[in-house]
Design a binder for these strands. Sequence first.
DNA 1: AATCGGTGTGGGAGCGTTCCCACAATGCGC
DNA 2: GCGCATTGTGGGAACGCTCCCACACCGATT
Lengths: 353, 353
Amino acid sequence: MNLEDVARLAGVSRSTVSRVINNDRRVSERARRRVMEVIQRYEYHPNAAARSLASRRTHILGLLVPDALSHIFSDPFFPKLVQGAIEGCNESGNNLMMLMDTPGATSVNQMYRRVVRGRHLDAIVVASSVVNDPVVARLRKDGYPFVLVGRHPRFEDTSFVDTDNREGARQAVSHLLGHGHRRIAFIGGPENMIAAMDRYDGYASALSEAGAQPDPELVVFADFTYEAGYLAMRSLLPRRPEAVFAASDLIALGAYRALREAGVRVPDDVAVFGFDDLDAARVAEPPLSSVTQHPEELGREAVRIALRLLEHPDGAVHEVLPVPLAIRRSCGCEEAEGAGALPRQPGVQLAGR
Amino acid sequence: MNLEDVARLAGVSRSTVSRVINNDRRVSERARRRVMEVIQRYEYHPNAAARSLASRRTHILGLLVPDALSHIFSDPFFPKLVQGAIEGCNESGNNLMMLMDTPGATSVNQMYRRVVRGRHLDAIVVASSVVNDPVVARLRKDGYPFVLVGRHPRFEDTSFVDTDNREGARQAVSHLLGHGHRRIAFIGGPENMIAAMDRYDGYASALSEAGAQPDPELVVFADFTYEAGYLAMRSLLPRRPEAVFAASDLIALGAYRALREAGVRVPDDVAVFGFDDLDAARVAEPPLSSVTQHPEELGREAVRIALRLLEHPDGAVHEVLPVPLAIRRSCGCEEAEGAGALPRQPGVQLAGR
DNA sequence: AATCGGTGTGGGAGCGTTCCCACAATGCGC
DNA sequence: GCGCATTGTGGGAACGCTCCCACACCGATT
């Protein structure tokens, strides 16, 4: 079943059918109706390959995520980002192709050749977040349309969406300062990740607003993981911080563990603030105050920007998403009623079989 | 840059270049060398659309995951599955397209039309897991190549990969029985999920091997979530179980919470066994014994089977992956040295900036 | 009555491959 | 020296669309 077949069955020409499909308005109502009828009856759908070949548009966007070796998929950030990107594609009639630099089998080089130079994609969303990703430079050189998730320090003319990491961190630390804490520790992510450093900058800027400055003794750069948070907190304990700002919830939860083992109470002895607002923050004990970010939004917006880029190739778009604080008990606040506690009613089905 | 250009530059015909690219052996060594040189120099890569159009192969596989409304992405299962599927594609020179039935925007119907009938894909991996998924019936009717992640109770002639849910559950419960427990509770997943019911069957079969049978009082069907586990455990507490087999680690961790709140010690008062062996199981307190499954393997194998299906369209493949137990402390065992405890050495960088 | 812009329609060319058939060149047995 | 596989090569047709140009037809303008 192809265009020609539909045309024959509807008694019109190939061109007319094509116009109907592409919503060209220069088609009589009568012709349009007859074509639509045939299309409906035979469940016709134009062949994607032929369409791409003729129109030079594949309606496929790529999403490049970091290599599998990293613990990247134990953090819900990427899954949510993927979900948002798929939604962004669905709402615009596009498709999402996953690109991942799996170790060994396919080098990023091979993948680049195959996918980018093979014209498989209309544009690409790069969610790699490491400062010196060679892919970015290459995409720029090839003039390939792409959008970054997470800003890039150089390359002002490159489009990106980002969470307002700096401002979120600043607010969180200001909040801790508001509780009267002065010795506020920082447990951060890898120093080669822009988002991680932006959060550090926010921490430093909140302190400086209060007339203080970061105490190197109270600052640790680690990984965005539970284990790293645990170890970092253990190393910080002897320095007697009054509060801890963790650059991710996973880190904060690892810190919880170290504090619990040391018999230190949260928030009474040490206040804790996280970043991400994962589900796990809500159900932690005590519920973890955290900076809210929405990776789904990041994904969805990145796709939208990529699509806009195809229409207006010049004109870089920079978009920064807001980061409200989710205030719970771990910072020392009384939690608002129902803000996150577990429900008390069973509401689950109790049954044998 | 296209085939013809390469041909001209190499002083051969279009056909010869095509043969070189497709590893056809009927090419002289001399011609092959000259063609390869040109390809290398200009970084030529064949146009995907043209290729698909002529060869009727897109080298794209689809991965259909359940709709976004579900909490599906807070469980690491799907992310890992996706990762495995990407690896499977990369190692075979294919690409992975994500398909998700996002609510509203695009109905599964539209997506089906666009992607399946538009010949966008060579085959599709269905990871939906609900018994009555209408997509499965439709794919069968259309004779479209597809592989299920998770077995399907009907449709014996449909290929699938699955975790050995029944056997994993059986072994876990046998293990608990081996510790001398008799009143073993079960907290399961949704009753319309095959995997969830397979785990229940394993539970029941372990009991029956021991001459017992499930006590309806001790069986709860819930969701694969932390909250559901928490609520289910609360409802079970009055029934005084000696042990609990949770059909997922998230459930088990929710149960931990309910037990802790009630002042019940694990494993001293109640032993707990989970399913999945998430990272979180290893770092839980006490470390959670769990049935190990590998969603990455599931994804990778599903892709391999899909590819095999393209070569041999008849001949359904059924593959069931083994599920070793990860024994830790929550079931009452002494944990093996280093089997999962958190490291004691800092090993993180301590620094200001 | 001749001219004009606007609207709907049809058909040819082209997108960049693969596949098939034709054919030249080579080596071999007789 | 001839036929005859075997090997390497070239070119046409096809894949199923989109895009562009040509043209028929209409009512309105001169």
